[in-house]
Amino acid sequence: MKTETFDIIKSSGEKAKFSLEKLRSSLIRVGADEETVNHIIDTVRDELYQGISTKEIYNRAFAMLKKKERHLASRYKLKKAIYELGPTGFPFERFIGAILKYSGYKTEVDTIIQGRCVSHEVDVMANKNGNTTIIECKFHREKGINCNVKIPLYIHSRYNDIKAHWDKDLKNSSILTQGWVVTNTRFTLDAIAYGKCANLYLLSWDYPENEGLKDRIDRLGLYPITVSTLLTNREKQFLLSRDIVLCRELIGDNFYLDHLGVSETRKKRILNEISMLCKS
C-alpha cells in the first residue's frame, strides 16, 4: 500500500493523508544528514497504520533523532517546546520580547499604556528607529486551537484607542506605527484577511510564509529553554521562574544549574547541548 493512502489524525482531530515528503522536509530542516533522514523515514514507513496520530509519528522520529544527536532532537521538538512555556502566557511574552530584542528592537514586557478611553495592559512594546509597535501575545496550551477573527478585531480596537491618545501626547518621542498579534498556534483565514485589511501584523507558528515563529527562531538561534532534552520539567520550570527563557540566557547564567544541584558532569552535557543548538 502506498504511504499516501494512509490517513493520519492531526492534533486538531482532523484526518489528513500522510506525506513522506513533509516528514523528510522537517528532518532536513533541523539539520539531520541524509543517512539519518532515510533511516527515520524507512522506520516510520514500516510502522504506519490507518489512523496513526501525528503525535505517534513525531515521537518515533524524535526518539531516533535523540539517539543520533540530541541538539537535532531539540530543534525537532521546537513546536512542542513552545507549548511547554505554559501554563501561563507570561514566559511566551518574554520569549517574543527576546526574539524582537535580538532583531534590533528595544523592548518592554507587560506594560500599561494609556488610551483615549481607558488604559491597556500591553504584552510587549517594541521600539526601533523611532517607531513603536504594540504586541498582543495569544498563548494556547492545547494544540489544535486556532485564533479566529475575534482576536484581531479586539486587538485592533485596543490599538486604535491607544493610538488616539499616543498621537496627542507630546511626551511620546516615537511614532506608534502598528499593532501585532502573535500566537503559538495558527490564525484562521478570516483572521488573516482582517489583519491584512486593518494593517494589523499577524505572526504565528508558520505565518507569514518564511517569516513565521519557527523561521525566526531557527534563523536567529533563539530557542526556548524548554527544547532541552536533558533538563527535567522541574528544572525547566525553575529556570522559567527565574526569567531564563532562552537557551543562550542559560549559557550566560549557568550558575542556576548549581542552584538546582546539577552535577558537574551533567552540567557540561546540558551546556554542550544548548551551545550546539544555538550555534546551529
Rank of each mutant, 00 (worst) to 15 (best):
T3Q: 10
F6E: 04
D7F: 08
I8E: 08
I8D: 09
I8F: 07
S11D: 07
S11G: 06
S12G: 09
S12T: 11
E14K: 12
A16W: 00
L23R: 05
L27N: 02
I28G: 10
R29W: 00
V30M: 00
G31C: 02
E35I: 14
H39P: 05
H39K: 06
I41P: 02
I41T: 03
I41V: 10
D42S: 15
T43K: 08
T43C: 08
D46K: 06
E47N: 12
L48F: 08
L48D: 10
T54W: 02
K55I: 13
E56C: 11
Y58C: 12
R60C: 14
L65Y: 00
K68E: 01
E69V: 03
H71K: 01
H71G: 06
L72H: 00
R75G: 00
K77Q: 07
L78H: 00
T88V: 10
P91A: 02
F92K: 04
E93T: 06
E93S: 05
I96V: 13
A98E: 03
L100E: 11
K101F: 04
Y105F: 13
K106G: 15
K106H: 09
E108Q: 13
T111P: 09
T111D: 04
Q114E: 05
G115F: 07
R116K: 02
R116H: 02
C117W: 14
V118W: 11
S119V: 02
S119I: 01
H120K: 03
E121Y: 02
V122Y: 03
K128I: 11
N129L: 14
N129I: 13
K138C: 06
F139R: 07
H140C: 09
R141G: 03
K143H: 06
N146M: 13
K150N: 15
I151P: 01
P152H: 09
Y154E: 15
I155Y: 05
N160A: 10
K163R: 06
D167F: 12
K168T: 05
L170G: 09
K171H: 10
N172L: 03
S174T: 03
L176R: 09
L176Y: 02
W180E: 13
V181H: 01
V182G: 13
T183H: 07
R186S: 14
R186D: 12
L189T: 10
I192L: 14
I192A: 15
G195H: 03
K196P: 00
N199W: 08
L202W: 04
S204Y: 05
D206A: 12
L213E: 07
K214S: 10
K214H: 11
K214I: 14
D215I: 06
L222D: 05
L222Q: 03
P224T: 06
I225T: 04
T226Y: 02
V227N: 04
T229W: 01
L231I: 04
T232E: 04
T232R: 10
N233Q: 14
N233K: 14
N233S: 15
N233T: 14
Q237F: 03
Q237D: 11
F238C: 15
L239W: 12
R242C: 10
R242E: 14
I244S: 03
V245M: 09
G252A: 10
D253S: 15
D253E: 14
N254A: 12
N254V: 06
D258Y: 00
G261K: 01
G261L: 06
S263P: 01
T265K: 08
E273L: 02
I274S: 08
M276D: 13
L277E: 04
S280T: 01
